[in-house]
Design a protein around this nucleic acid. Structure first.
Lengths: 397, 397
DNA sequence: CTAATTACACTGGAGTCCATAATTATTAGC
DNA sequence: GCTAATAATTATGGACTCCAGTGTAATTAG
């Protein structure tokens, strides 16, 4: 029914309490023992015992005590976020963005390499190597010091980290992203669709922080979605959740057509710039551009309504390239959802710019760390993460 | 991140182990101490201690030892499923079905009262009273002995147990089902949409037992859906998940039109019987009937595809009144889903007949019992459930 | 009737948590 | 500077829970 059925030892209780202490300290600045005891509900004596063990294992460190308060100054402790690092990579059509973050998820270093949608897979993978290499060098990290890596890519991804199908980048289909990135760093490499990871980022530290059920719309030259259900990323049985765009009745393919007819009837050389122009013109009051945007939103809203009616989320987040013009999309989208939906959820625009996907990749890597930490067995030491063997992927040249 | 952050006492460990023992015994016939120890992972000594406590509290009872094996005969224990009873009620268009079940979910008594869709709310509520009264009398239960009740109804239900909107039964809109049933029994009354509860039943003990993500289609004179996500019933923020039928592009309204034109163009007196005839004729090879069924499935599949593409479930279950003709629907539905879906899930037909919804209502009541059992605080005694005050609903005549 | 088998019951030891009291370090006020 | 007040730390003892090991009880096989 609920939780795990297996019974427990006294050591299990200790481990539970140790994880409770870690959970309380994570993301916090530095807390006194008394404060930790209060927040965990443990007695001071037990808290002290647990904290001593966590200090010895290297999960916590002592911080400078703060002076100025009456009474004996308390020692302060904080989570040792620097005990390990994770990597998050966004492999996009226009850029490769690689982030290094500590165990609190604070991004410490950034590496960015520009690419184009036209590049072949060889070139794109080389750009990935450069971005990851640069950010690791910048952070002064050896490959073996990375505890886990999350990678975002367009298209459907299978369980082994291979791209099964990418419509946006045809040459990309079939690439085993996990094994490629796995040659650059140690630790497990977790690959996931970019829309899903952008959704994860919003629910982690974006505008969807407070919501348990979220529909994230990746609105750009490619339309996608990511779903947060009950606070967790929903992947689906075949990792294909949110692919409503495949249904013609959802009108997402038509939606983009309205934007492509700008400025004239000829296909423009650079579609991204053309759409950028279109949104700018619409904001300036150009009638034809405004009409195109409204038509786009009208079609986008059909698929979005299908997602919303299916899940009845608390919140819809607009992300992706067009989120820069989110103000133009927000109101018409709300009106259209009002037309179709039983209950129209709140709608917000992402504030992450083009870094949301990479942040989601960081979160994916941290999720793995947390899963090991909260997984079965004994409480692991930080050094455990340095000796984890690579997941079941094989390196293929 | 994961689980509850609050730390724990030694008593928490004991409680965890007690719940582990209960979890192992639940639904099992009768186990020896050694067997329980093996399954929980606890030592024999501790298991004995825990079992003694559970016996004293009344959560377990001793069963007859079985002879015939070599060695000292082991005492056998089983979960005391008779310690309490729950009620499950399905308020449908054509019947009121009330079930009494024990804590293992085994249905012990059944009460059924026929109604018609045309009945007013007064009559329908009176029928509910009769069905519930009959099944309680049959089971020899006082109203105060019911630990919890689950009630299924058509339409959208709000958090207080009121029907916000019922399209199938217009007169039903606005009825506070929870407070009405609450006058018949003690304990909390939990009201939920019938499609959602039918889905719950399938995932509990139906054809969807093994699947974590399930789309349940309530295919009948009304079309609805229930979603199981990550093994749990997904309700949505406003309890309106699965209402894809509201979207015209999903074509569920049109779908039913194809079935209504039978046998002629005149609207028949009894739509249910007419559709029954239609399916029978289709099975007998009537061309016009077969065409109508195919058209129905074709439209049904559009909305179903939206659900499937959104969630990427492992399984689709066909339930509702038409599931009796599931064999006629299964294959064409699979073909249509193949057309639209990225990955077509397995499709199965419900085997519950018209009792699935009521079973789901039983499960809803049991979920409440389990939630209290696994909830915060001390391990409760069975008698705790007899003194639970009614939830925040008020009785209104 | 005896040996083998299996379950039960008892004991002592270890680990964990908690409440309480004694000790220590700092600030505030005079 | 000295003392009181404040709040953290350290130390002590008790209670609870789990476990391993040992001896006892009840049954079957031969």
């Amino acid at each position: 029914m609920t939780g795990d059925l297996s019974g427990g030892d006294l050591s299990r209780l200790r481990r539970l309490n140790a994880l409770a202490v870690i959970g309380v300290l994570r993301g916090e600045p530095a807390l006194t023992l008394t404060e930790v005891a209060r927040r965990t509900g443990l007695s001071r004596a037990s808290t002290e015992d647990v904290v001593r063990e966590l200090l010895e294992r290297g999960w916590m460190i002592e911080a400078e005590p703060t002076a100025g308060t009456v009474g004996r100054p308390a020692r302060r402790y904080r989570f040792h976020a620097d005990a390990g690092r994770v990597l998050g990579v966004d492999i996009g059509g226009h850029k490769i963005l690689a982030l290094v973050a500590d165990l609190d998820g604070a991004v410490t270093h950034t590496g960015r390499v520009a690419v184009t949608p036209q590049m072949g897979r060889r070139q794109r993978l080389a750009a990935v190597d450069r971005a990851v290499g640069a950010v690791l060098a910048d952070a002064g990290l050896e490959a073996a010091e990375v505890w886990a890596s999350g990678v975002a890519t367009t298209g459907l991804v299978d369980a082994t980290g291979r791209v099964m199908l990418s419509e946006a980048l045809p040459e990309w289909t079939g690439v085993n992203v996990a094994s490629h990135v796995g040659r650059l760093v140690s630790g497990p490499v977790l690959v996931e669709n970019d829309g899903k990871l952008a959704a994860l980022a919003e629910s982690w530290r974006g505008v969807a922080r407070y919501a348990k059920d979220v529909v994230f719309l990746l609105a750009g030259l490619r339309t996608g979605a990511g779903l947060i259900i009950d606070g967790k990323l929903h992947r689906g049985f075949g990792n294909a959740a949110g692919e409503i765009g495949a249904l013609p009745a959802a009108r997402w393919v038509q939606a983009l057509e309205h934007l492509r007819s700008w400025p004239g009837d000829d296909p423009p050389a650079d579609p991204d710039a053309a759409v950028e122009d279109l949104f700018l013109a619409a904001r300036d009051g150009d009638r034809k551009a405004g009409l195109a945007v409204r038509r786009y939103v009208k079609d986008l809203a059909v698929g979005a309504s299908a997602l919303v009616l299916t899940l009845d989320p608390e919140l819809v987040v607009i992300g992706g390239g067009f989120s820069r013009s989110g103000d133009l999309i927000l109101e018409p989208l709300r009106r259209e959802l009002d037309r179709w939906c039983v209950r129209t959820p709140e709608i917000r625009v992402s504030g992450f710019g083009d870094e949301g996907v990479a942040l989601g990749a960081v979160r994916l890597a941290l999720d793995h760390v947390d899963a090991v930490l909260h997984g079965p067995g004994e409480l692991v030491d930080p050094k455990h993460f340095l000796t984890v063997e690579r997941p079941r992927t094989r390196i293929e040249p």
